[in-house]
Design a binder for these strands. Structure first.
Length: 510
RNA sequence: GCGCCGGUAGUCUAGCCUGGUAGGAUGGCGGCCUCCCGAGCCGCUGAUCCCGGGUUCGAAUCCCGGCCGGCGCACCA
C-alpha cells in the first residue's frame, strides 16, 4: 500500500529569526540564561530539542559506528591536557594579536595587517609584532591613524585544574573533539587490534570563545561535534573497497578552481567523474564525502539544497591537504557549512609524536606507517538547522514539520475523537500500550482538528484516533501527518503496523 | 570587537515621535459544546514594558551606561 505524496507547496521560507521564535515556542531551543538577559552564544535544548538531539546522535552513531566493523567509538574528556593544543597548533593559531587604530577605532589582526603590507612575520609574539609595526611605521589602512599596541586574543576557553589557579594548572576546554581521537590513537590500536584502514568516531561538546556569535544556532560558543578520523595508509589512498558502491552518486560540486574563476554555482557531477578529473584528491576522500551526504539525506535533509565546496588555498587550514565543506542552502544567508570533510594528512599524529615522544605508527604490510587521516566533521546544531529548514512545509495552509519518523521527537499521538466516557478510557488503553515502544503523547482537550494541527507542527508523524467505531469493533484510525490520509487498523495489529510504517516511511510519503 | 538599527506576556504585536490607568491577537489552564482536520461560547492565567542610572510631579515613551538580538565590517584556527 502506498499513499500519495503530500500536497505541499513551497513555503514562504522562514528567516533564521523566525525559526528561532518557532523553536522557542515549540520547545526545541531556548536562549540560555534568558531570565537573566541571555548569554550570547549559548542555547539550551528544550523538551523537543533534547529528543531531536538524541535521535540524530543515535542515528549518526548507528550509521557510522554500530553497523560498521571498521570504526570504533570513543568518548573523550572535555577538559584536556594543555600540551594537546600546543602540539595541534591551536595554542598558536587560536591566540591572535589584535591592534586597534587610535584614531578611528578599527581593529585588525596584527599578523594579517603586517602581511598585507608585505612584511613577513617570523613569529607570533607580542614583542615581534609590536616591533615590526613600529619599525615599518604601519598605520591604519582606513584612516592612516596611529595604531595601538597589539593585544592577545584567545579563542579557547580556559580553566584551572585543581583549586589553585596557577600557570601550571591552566587547561583548555577542547575547541574540537578531533584531537581526543589522536591522543587516544595508541590506546585503540593496543586494545582493539585494529588494522588499516580503520576509523575512530566521537561526538561531544566543543567550545570556542567566538568574537561574535551570531545566527541563532549557527555560530555558538558551546556546540556539539560529530567527528570521524579515518586512518589510511598514505600509499593506499585510492584503495577503497567501498568505492564501487558510491562512485555513481551525483553531487553538487564547487571546486577551488571554479571559485578562482569566479564561478558561483556548483555543477552536478558523479563521484567517479570528480575523482577521474582530479577534483577530489583520492578515493577514500571521495568515499567519505559520499557517505556523509548519504547520511544527511537519510535523516531528511533536502539533497537538492546540499553542495560540496572545496576550500580555496587561502582558507585551507594549516594541517589540511584538501578540504571540502558540505554546505546547505539557507534562506537569506545562502550556502553555509554544516560539515567539513578534510584530508588532514599525517599532520596531527606526527605532531603528537613529536611533542609527546609517543610512537604514533601502526604496522601495515609489515611496514611502519603513520597513517593519513580523512576527517568528516559534522556540527550537530547546524545539521539540526538544515533538518528543520528541510522539514518545514506548508500543507493545506497549515505549518507542518515533516520530520522523518526516525528523528521525530514524538512518534505517535493518541487522541479520543471526542472527550466523552468510553472514548477516553479506550484511548488511554491504546496510549499505555504504545508508549511502551514509541515516544507517544495523549491529548483529549480541544477539537480533533486542533490536536492534529498541534501534532503536525511538532512533527509527530502519525496520530491514532479512537472513534465511535472503535467501541464496536476494536479498530482505530492511523492518520498520516504529511498526507492527512487515514487507514483503519485493528488494535491488536497496531504496534506491528506502526513498526512497518516507520520502517517503510518513504513509501508513505513525507 | 567596531558602526548602524532594534528589545512590550510563551509567540506575534499596538502604544513611543508629541511623557499621564500597558491594550489586542495567539498560546496555556479549567469548563460547556463537538463523531475527523487550528469551529463557537464561558471562566482563569500570563508582561522585571531587557537591566541599571538620570531628567521629571509623573518614564514603556526623553537622556546616559550595560545586556541581548539583527544587519554591515572584522573574525571563523
Amino acid at each position: 500500500m502506498s499513499l500519495e505524496k503530500a500536497e505541499s507547496k513551497t513555503v514562504q521560507e522562514m528567516t533564521l529569526q523566525e525559526l528561532a521564535s518557532f523553536c522557542t515556542r515549540l520547545g526545541f531551543f531556548y536562549p540560555s540564561g534568558r531570565i537573566y538577559g541571555g548569554l550570547s552564544g549559548f542555547y539550551d535544548y528544550g523538551p523537543l530539542g533534547a529528543e531531536l538531539r538524541r535521535e540524530i546522535l543515535n542515528d549518526w552513531w548507528w550509521y557510522f559506528v554500530e553497523r560498521r566493523d571498521d570504526i570504533w567509538g570513543i568518548h573523550g574528556s572535555i577538559i584536556t591536557h594543555p600540551r594537546t593544543w600546543v602540539a595541534s597548533g591551536h595554542v598558536d593559531s587560536f591566540i591572535d594579536f589584535i591592534v586597534t587604530c587610535k584614531k578611528c577605532g578599527a581593529e585588525y589582526r596584527a599578523d594579517h595587517l603586517l602581511e598585507d603590507s608585505g612584511i613577513s612575520v617570523p613569529e607570533l609574539t607580542l614583542e615581534t609584532l609590536s616591533k615590526l609595526i613600529k619599525d615599518h611605521g604601519v598605520r591604519c589602512p582606513k584612516c592612516k591613524g596611529e595604531l595601538g599596541d597589539p593585544t592577545p586574543f584567545n579563542l579557547m576557553f580556559t580553566t584551572y585544574v585543581g583549586p589553585k589557579k596557577t600557570v601550571a594548572s591552566l587547561a583548555y576546554l577542547r575547541p574540537e573533539t578531533a584531537q581526543l581521537i589522536f591522543t587516544n590513537f595508541r590506546n585503540i590500536i593496543m586494545t582493539m587490534g585494529v588494522k588499516l584502514p580503520f576509523g575512530i568516531a566521537q561526538y561531544g561538546k566543543a567550545f570556542r570563545n567566538e568574537i561574535s556569535p551570531r545566527g541563532f544556532l549557527f555560530r555558538l560558543r558551546e556546540f556539539e561535534q560529530m567527528e570521524i578520523e579515518y586512518f589510511v595508509n598514505p600509499k593506499k589512498l585510492d584503495e577503497c573497497p567501498f568505492y564501487n558502491e558510491i562512485k555513481g552518486m551525483e553531487i553538487n560540486l564547487l571546486s577551488a578552481e571554479m571559485q578562482e574563476k569566479r564561478i558561483k554555482e556548483g555543477v552536478w557531477i558523479t563521484i567517479e567523474d570528480a575523482v577521474d578529473k582530479g577534483l577530489i584528491g583520492c578515493k577514500w576522500h571521495a568515499y567519505w564525502i559520499a557517505e556523509s551526504l548519504r547520511w544527511l539525506k537519510n535523516i531528511g535533509i533536502d539533497y537538492k539544497r546540499l553542495r560540496v565546496r572545496e576550500h580555496i588555498k587561502t582558507e585551507l587550514a594549516h594541517y589540511a591537504v584538501q578540504t571540502f565543506d558540505v554546505e546547505f542552502l539557507f534562506p537569506q544567508a545562502g550556502w553555509k557549512e554544516i560539515e567539513g570533510i578534510s584530508n588532514r594528512s599525517d599532520y596531527d599524529l606526527r605532531k603528537h609524536q613529536e611533542y609527546s615522544g609517543a610512537e604514533m605508527h601502526i604496522y601495515d604490510d609489515g611496514e611502519k606507517v603513520i597513517p593519513y587521516v580523512i576527517e568528516p566533521s559534522f556540527g550537530l546544531e547546524r545539521v539540526i538547522l538544515a533538518v528543520l529548514f528541510s522539514s518545514l512545509n506548508e500543507i493545506k495552509g497549515r505549518r507542518v514539520l515533516s520530520l522523518h519518523p526516525k528523528i521525530a521527537p514524538i512518534k505517535v499521538g493518541v487522541f479520543p475523537l471526542v472527550s466523552k466516557p468510553g472514548f477516553v478510557e479506550k484511548a488511554k488503553e491504546v496510549y499505555e500500550m504504545l508508549k511502551e515502544e514509541f515516544k507517544t503523547i495523549y491529548e483529549a482537550k480541544d477539537s480533533i482538528g486542533r490536536r492534529y494541527a498541534r501534532a503536525d507542527e511538532r512533527g509527530v508523524p502519525i496520530c491514532v484516533t479512537i472513534d465511535g467505531q472503535t467501541l464496536n469493533d476494536n479498530t482505530v484510525t492511523i492518520r498520516f501527518r504529511d498526507t492527512r490520509e487515514q487507514i483503519r487498523v485493528p488494535i491488536e495489529d497496531l504496534k506491528e503496523k506502526i513498526r512497518a510504517i516507520f520502517r517503510e516511511w518513504s513509501t508513505y510519503g513525507a
